[in-house]
Design a protein around this nucleic acid. Structure first.
Lengths: 210, 210
DNA sequence: AATTGTGTGTATCAAAAGATACTTATCTCA
DNA sequence: TGAGATAAGTATCTTTTGATACACACAATT
């Protein structure tokens, strides 16, 4: 856990010395293996997870379909947990570890206490609320107004923006899950994109031309 | 403004004496007439509006369509404004007064200050974030997974839950705007509902059977 | 090599939603 | 009262999306 500890100490959001001391005093560090489900819809959470390393995927489910809400990366926490833990309310989404992840876990009651005590914690919480809200608002507008092919195109271009390569190592099924539709629909649209020379399709990944 | 002042003093969220004094010291009270646009997409806000009386409608727009995000009633504030004012970010939604409304207006910089100073203010802000987030999440799930007829049915039944009567004084166009679709689609579905004896249609309002 | 699972291609059909256009009410207000 | 605005009904056509079913390719494992 030495390495994790070092990672934690580098996080700017918690660099306020008093706060850092407090966190170290009360937090547990846990590991989540790839595919592990951390949060289930309907569940009450009495802890707040902050990701140190790795990636969580938070999504909503509806019978056979699902749709992505957001990812939680290092130095971030999960809106659902925050909401659930702070307000003692059940979660309305699911969370799963996309990769081997290291997570700092805080008892729920500290959220409110530190809100008033530590400005940097206060900022962190509000920043979390705001950025998650913005993400969701954006996703909402997209789902409400844009056809799937446009959303898919935007998803793909957004994907490679953060990467050096323009290979997108994602299956059609995963794309369907993220965008809230079915695999066949994605395959159909991707084939259309290929005809338009926008992409090249391979097993297990997609290459974006541009 | 006497009446407004009295209304304000009754708001539980701000009953903490020190906070109330501060608000009265720094706030302005304004009136918005029906149809007045208070917030525009892209605009920077340096104030936080809290509704004392009346109703604001906050929505997103996309060319010819629009979709409802939420309403802001008495003792509530607008997520967009809060987000914009606190983080110095532009608004990503529009706000319009649905009726003659009375609004308390606070300078943006006080939001952060009071966050640390007044527990009840802190609670108010977080409650705002949470409830707006929940509403949006719910709307998102609906748009992603449910067909319009189901959403419309839910909208109508939710509407009369808060009313004594089962008359819904809303035009088809307004329903279309709230649900993010077009008038013709709404009219078509409502006619179907009428055949199924779920509703009776009149000019300007809808009567729900049950 | 045979088996199994996953990923992809694709055809067919059905349903949902949107676009357009035109008609008929009803209300408002000068 | 009559002109214009708003509300609603409806028919037709197209597009988008979804459901289902099946074939085939590739990979990993035994």
């Amino acid at each position: 856990m030495e390495a994790t500890l070092d990672l934690f100490k580098e996080l700017k959001s918690f660099s306020e010395p008093e706060l850092q001391k407090e966190i170290l005093k009360h937090a547990k560090f846990i590991k989540a293996s790839k595919g592990e489900i951390l949060i289930k819809e309907g569940q009450y959470l009495n802890f707040l997870p902050i990701v140190i390393k790795g990636l969580l995927r938070v999504y909503q489910q509806n019978e056979d379909r699902e749709i992505l809400l957001y990812y939680v990366g290092p130095e971030q926490t999960c809106m659902m947990s925050l909401s659930s833990a702070y307000f003692d309310y059940y979660s309305t989404a699911n969370g799963i570890a996309m990769e081997e992840s290291e997570i700092l876990v805080l008892p729920a009651h500290l959220i409110a206490e530190w809100q008033l005590k530590y400005p940097s914690w206060n900022k962190f919480i509000l920043r979390t609320f705001k950025s998650r809200y913005d993400e969701l608002l954006n996703a909402f507008g997209n789902v409400a107004f844009k056809p799937i092919n446009v959303r898919l195109k935007e998803y793909l271009t957004a994907y490679i923006k953060n990467e050096s390569s323009n290979k997108i190592p994602v299956s059609h099924q995963t794309l369907a899950n993220d965008l809230g539709t079915t695999r066949v629909v994605i395959s159909r649209i991707l084939k259309q994109f290929e005809k338009e020379k926008l992409v090249k399709l391979y097993r297990g990944y997609i290459q974006l031309n541009s």
